[in-house]
């Protein structure tokens, strides 16, 4: 049954490029929702984000300030947009902006803008630096890792972890290294760019799986769809993937949700080793770019997230179709210069 009210939903991450933001796929899910109709307000950082020009998906787009401008600037801009558009909900889709949106969630709700995001504690607990502790606390296998402050510390770990090692920046960047020379180079390169500490992680041999899902904040699984990447671009993004039935991955997801009481959407990056054990490599605290696959196999996560955000009764999905694939493709739009001019000079289109 459809709700009478037409919702106005703001969505970020309209950069449907070769390393895509999830926004456009989220919007497709929202527009296919069975329980409500909605109009979509795009929130963009740059004028060339393709979603801005997809007028059949996005009703209007506004520029918003970069997270580095601070929450106050973001709040003021959102209030300006709210005044014009009367937003019911905002769905942020970038890692880098989540901190600001989580911080503002309470204030936005007071103005009638709902969201459904992890708590700041959950957001922090899953940071790479905190992953070992996270694994210990919730009894989840994670690769061994340690935050180090000098390249000398790496060499004390090589015996424990064995080669190769994964050298990771605090927030971004990672490289796989096979000997101490490469490790030192990677340490210097990544630390020069992202600062200290550097995370040295044990490499797990095996097959990578991903699970996207939704937690209601009380420990219940509202949605969970596992996928195996079939083709990965040189940027490490899935260009094709297939849904699978994998009880172990689903059990792990349910355990993750139950023990952390995770609130909101997420993506788990899992590695299955030869012994069939799953290791949790990373937790992305947001909807992944391949979310439309989940919609396509029967779990409309953007729709369910909207309902949770608005406190509507939301039933958990219990099944999905396995063996369905997504194959991503690029699409050239023809855009008039006036439109580009409009968004560039006025910040609205």
């Amino acid at each position: 049954m459809k709700n009478n009210k037409k919702l106005t939903i703001a969505v970020t991450g309209l950069n449907a490029i070769d390393s895509p933001g999830p926004g456009v796929s989220v919007i497709r899910g929202l527009l296919e929702a069975k329980s409500f109709d909605c109009r979509i307000i795009g929130l963009a950082y740059e004028s060339l984000e393709p979603g801005i020009y997809m007028h059949d998906l996005v009703d209007k787009t506004y520029h918003i300030p970069y997270p580095s401008a601070g929450t106050e600037a973001l709040y003021n801009r959102l209030m300006y947009i709210h005044e014009k558009e009367k937003l019911d909900l905002v769905i942020p889709n970038f890692d880098a902006e989540l901190y600001s949106f989580i911080k503002l969630a309470g204030k936005l709700k007071q103005s009638g803008i709902h969201s459904f995001l992890p708590t700041l504690e959950q957001f922090e607990a899953r940071q790479k630096v905190n992953l070992p502790e996270f694994g210990k606390k919730f009894n989840i296998h994670v690769p061994q890792s340690k935050a180090v402050y000098s390249s000398a510390e790496i060499f004390s770990l090589e015996q424990e972890y064995g080669w190769p090692l994964v050298i990771k920046g605090k927030y971004y960047d990672a490289s796989l290294v096979y000997n101490s020379d490469q490790a030192a180079t990677a340490f210097n390169k990544i630390s020069a760019r992202w600062g200290l500490p550097i995370i040295v992680q044990q490499f797990i041999h095996g097959t990578e799986y991903n699970v996207t899902g939704l937690g209601d904040g009380n420990g219940n699984t509202i949605a969970a769809v596992p996928m195996r990447k079939q083709y990965i671009t040189d940027k490490g993004k899935a260009w094709g993937g297939i849904t699978i039935t994998d009880q172990k991955a689903l059990d792990l997801t349910a355990h993750f949700l139950k023990s952390t009481k995770w609130r909101g959407a997420f993506e788990l990056e899992l590695m299955k080793n030869k012994a069939g054990e799953y290791y949790l490599l990373e937790i992305n605290p947001r909807i992944p770019a391949w979310i439309y696959l989940a919609v396509g196999v029967g779990q409309n996560i953007p729709e369910a997230l909207t309902k949770l955000a608005l406190d509507w009764p939301t039933e958990a999905f219990t099944s999905y179709e396995a063996g369905k694939m997504f194959i991503r493709y690029a699409w050239d739009m023809i855009v008039d210069l006036n439109e580009f001019q409009q968004i560039s000079t006025h910040g609205e289109l």
Binding site: L337, Q341, S344, T345
Partner: peptide, 17 residues
Amino acid sequence: VSDNGFIFNPASGESFT
């Protein structure tokens, strides 16, 4: 050159404000 200060150079494809 448009009234709102948007400039487009069709020869190079560059735009300015």
